[in-house]
């Protein structure tokens, strides 16, 4: 080949960088040992792990059958960490779980909310709809005539809670937000105000303790 047509190319300026390993290269050096790179032994090890879990759970199932035959199925040790949801609930649900919303109340049962739309503004799912009205008490001045949360759109991020300047909206730990009808998944003001710490929802606590009242 004519050397004039194919001159020796200059070496890249960053050659030293390459050799010194200072420049990022696309090669991702494998940190596996030779044994691990043989693949098959590691595959077998993985299969033995999953397989042992399988057999452990099948054994536990046999144990459960024994308990079930004696009518004490609930006491059987269980391998599954999940539950049959509507029939069972997880006992270890965290106290800071973000679930259904509530509106906190003043002492006379009126909503604490001043209809400032901060929650609606902060909401990334745009699921809060408020209509404000003139409150007869000039000291309160503004209150929500309508306060709807489309719970099926809600992503439970808790921004509304954080945006609220008067601690009027909170997320409880209650996560039973399922329904068969979409219409029923719009929570209106009265529903949100119906939360009562003395009633059955007691176990679904406020994350921050009792709501401030008055």
């Amino acid at each position: 080949m004519n050397p004039l047509l194919n001159p020796k190319l200059p070496e890249p300026a960053y050659k030293e960088e390459f050799t010194a390993g200072r420049l990022f290269t696309y090669r991702n050096p494998s940190d596996l040992t030779l044994w691990e790179r043989l693949y098959v032994p590691e595959v077998l090890r993985g299969l033995s792990i999953t397989g042992s879990i399988f057999f452990k759970n099948m054994g536990l199932w046999l144990v459960w059958l024994g308990y079930w035959a004696r009518g004490r199925a609930n006491e059987a040790p269980r391998g599954a960490v999940t539950v049959y949801y509507p029939e069972e609930e997880r006992p270890d649900m965290t106290k800071v779980n973000r679930g259904k919303h509530i509106l906190t109340q003043r002492l006379n049962g009126e909503p604490q909310c001043v209809a400032c739309y901060m929650c609606a503004t902060a909401c990334p799912a745009w699921c809060i709809h408020i209509d404000a009205g003139e409150h007869p008490d000039p000291a309160i001045e503004k209150y929500p005539v309508r306060f709807d949360i489309e719970i099926d759109k809600c992503i439970f991020c808790g921004y509304c809670e954080e945006a609220c300047p008067v601690d009027a909206i909170r997320l409880t730990t209650d996560y039973h937000t399922v329904d068969y009808l979409r219409e029923r998944m719009v929570y209106d003001r009265d529903y949100l105000l119906s939360w009562n710490p003395t009633k059955v929802q007691q176990e679904h606590v406020y994350p921050g303790g009792e709501p401030r009242r008055g």
Partner: peptide, 9 residues
């Protein structure tokens, strides 16, 4: 400073 209920906010 009642910006939450103030329409000018």
């Amino acid at each position: 400073i009642d910006c939450p209920i103030c329409d000018k906010a």
